[in-house]
């Protein structure tokens, strides 16, 4: 039983007329933990931002849960590559995580006890409970990353899209994050994660997308994670340029 929760058809994205993504087709299988791998500048972040409607593609179609509208994004939680937030903003860690509840509250409703409970359990999961009253700017890079992961968990979405969540993270925290992802998968969630360390792809993921401007291979790890496919994407001096 397979079901595609995200479908991307013939996507072209360009920055100042220079294509970063070229005729890309992909699907994300429901309830999978899918890695996106590819060399620097392959367009991984660009693909994710296009799915999140943060950039406008030149052409192509993106469907989330069969819908093309902005509303479909309500079911998606996004963790950017580097939190490009305003670090001067006065906010505690707990308040940042609570922002994840916004999609369930909307406009005026304030977060209630239940939302606090959800936020605290997300913090606990990321082992950041003790920092809940800390000003966000007073955290280390890895701790900040964990706060944004906690916010995504708190958002309680169906699909989680993460851009290199393991970048700059120590090995203990890395295992912690992977454990959390796998337990959320048990609850029916789907993950699309940009990943750089090719050695851990097999251990952490069940599906993989190998890309460099376009998709070189995509599917179950057991079927497409081959030396040949990896080499193609990493060595090819890009088919389009």
């Amino acid at each position: 039983m397979t079901e595609d929760i995200i479908k991307v058809k013939d996507l072209i994205v360009a920055y100042d007329e220079k294509p970063a993504i070229w005729h890309l087709n992909m699907t994300l299988q429901k309830n999978s933990i899918t890695a996106i791998v590819g060399p620097n500048g392959a367009g991984k972040s660009t693909l994710i931002k296009s799915i999140m409607q943060l950039i406008k593609p030149v052409s192509g179609e993106i469907q989330i849960n069969g819908s093309k509208s902005k509303k479909a994004l309500k079911d998606v939680a996004y963790v950017p590559q580097k939190g490009e937030v305003n670090w001067e903003f006065p906010t505690t860690v707990l308040d940042v995580v609570l922002m994840g509840r916004y999609v369930h509250k909307g406009w005026i409703k304030r977060p209630n006890k239940n939302d606090h409970k959800i936020a605290m359990s997300a913090l606990r999961e990321m082992k950041m409970e003790a920092f809940r009253n800390r000003q966000i700017s007073e955290l280390s890079g890895g701790q900040r990353q964990r706060v944004f992961l906690a916010r995504a968990i708190c958002q309680d979405a169906d699909i989680y899209i993460m851009d290199e969540p393991l970048q700059g993270i120590d090995i203990t925290t890395e295992k912690l994050i992977i454990k959390t992802i796998k337990s959320l998968q048990q609850e029916g969630k789907t993950f699309l994660v940009v990943h750089h360390n090719l050695d851990t792809v097999k251990e952490y993921f069940d599906h993989v997308i190998i890309m460099n401007k376009t998709i070189f291979a995509g599917g179950k790890i057991s079927e497409v994670w081959t030396e040949e496919n990896i080499d193609k994407a990493y060595n090819e001096v890009s088919a389009v340029r």
Binding site: Q53, Y78, V85, T91, Y102
Partner: peptide, 16 residues
């Protein structure tokens, strides 16, 4: 909305 947008404009646009 003002609070979330001022802190994190990118996130704010992904939550509508």
């Amino acid at each position: 909305q003002i609070r979330i947008y001022t802190f994190d404009p990118i996130y704010s646009s992904t939550v509508g």
